[in-house]
């Protein structure tokens, strides 16, 4: 929180902001993964949120503060429609369908003049806050206000996910992930719980997308390409599948940090990431969050009730 005051290095703030945006999306990815929903199309909902927000602001003249929640709702509504079909398919079919969704989304947006086709939407207005009592306007000029807004959004999302995971809903999700036939025989409506997770993940991605659009100031279809979806899953795995909240954040930070620390070109970045992924799978099933948790027990303590039961042993 203190960071923008201490570090004037705008670029570092940018990295934090991007990590935060990714965290919001990866939170949803890990949630779905826990239920056996292998979603490789999260970037599509990210994009739906971003483009919806941009259109609402440009065509309907809404303020960003309204378009953000609306974008989340729109992304959630899309998930509701698609989910009814996607989720009833098997695991692999779901995976393929989400990939197809991602590809189709990019194609549609690329060929749609309203959103500028492949050139996208160039100049999105920056968010501003109208301070009513003296009529002045605060504009988001530097990166700093974006940082604080993102921090707020991320915090809000984390709290929401924590509330879910520590409730009966979270326990039911765990049950589905551990033994779904048994859960079904105990009266759990598998479809409904999976759909809820799918919608929540889509809505958070959509919210992240709206923020992303107005932060970047422009939108291009390629930003939501399928490989972004792969990266989200990757960040989740590296962060730690066992820790649905801490893992999402840790994984996203690593995911953004690595290309920066290794500025030797994309190919080498990919190799390094691959190596880290293999190391995680072989030695640290709990991911980096798990490793950190052994050093800073607060992560584990704070995750109490939120740990994926798959990796319980790591807790002790």
């Amino acid at each position: 929180m203190v960071i923008p005051l201490v570090l004037e290095r705008v670029y570092v703030i940018h990295l934090f902001i991007m990590s935060g945006i990714y965290s919001i999306i990866v939170l949803g990815v890990l949630l779905q993964f826990k239920l056996g929903l292998w979603n490789l199309g999260a970037a599509a909902f990210w994009g739906i949120g971003a483009y919806s927000s941009a259109l609402l602001v440009r065509e309907l003249g809404l303020s960003f503060w309204l378009s953000l929640p609306l974008a989340a709702l729109i992304a959630g509504a899309c998930a509701l429609c698609l989910g009814s079909f996607f989720i009833r398919a098997g695991r692999v079919s779901f995976l393929l369908l989400t990939m197809v969704l991602n590809g189709v989304f990019v194609e549609i947006v690329g060929h749609w003049e309203l959103v500028g086709g492949w050139e996208g939407i160039p100049r999105l207005p920056k968010p501003s806050i109208h301070v009513s009592f003296n009529g002045s306007v605060m504009e988001f000029v530097t990166k700093t206000p974006y940082y604080y807004l993102l921090l707020f959004l991320l915090l809000m999302t984390v709290v929401a996910f924590y509330a879910l995971y520590s409730s009966r809903i979270g326990r039911t999700w765990s049950a589905i992930g551990l033994n779904s036939p048994l859960a079904a025989m105990l009266g759990v409506n598998l479809f409904r719980y999976k759909l809820i997770a799918f919608i929540i993940a889509a809505a958070s991605a959509g919210m992240g997308g709206s923020f992303y659009a107005h932060y970047q100031g422009f939108l291009v279809p390629r930003m939501f390409d399928m490989h972004e979806s792969f990266y989200f899953m990757l960040y989740g795995v590296v962060g730690g599948l066992a820790y649905p909240i801490a893992g999402a954040i840790v994984g996203s930070f690593i995911g953004v940090a690595i290309p920066e620390l290794l500025r030797v070109g994309e190919m080498f970045q990919a190799i390094f990431f691959g190596i880290i992924l293999i190391l995680v799978i072989l030695f640290a099933r709990g991911g980096v969050a798990g490793l950190l948790g052994q050093v800073y027990p607060i992560i584990i303590k704070g995750s109490k009730g939120v740990i994926f039961p798959f990796f319980r042993e790591l807790k002790s």
Binding site: P181, A184, M185, L186, F191
Partner: peptide, 24 residues
Amino acid sequence: LDTHEIARRGVGRTFQQTSLFMMS
């Protein structure tokens, strides 16, 4: 009917080897 609807009507089951949530 779906399994959960049948369960809700009062049918229960113990499974052969996997009648537990192992990691809970």
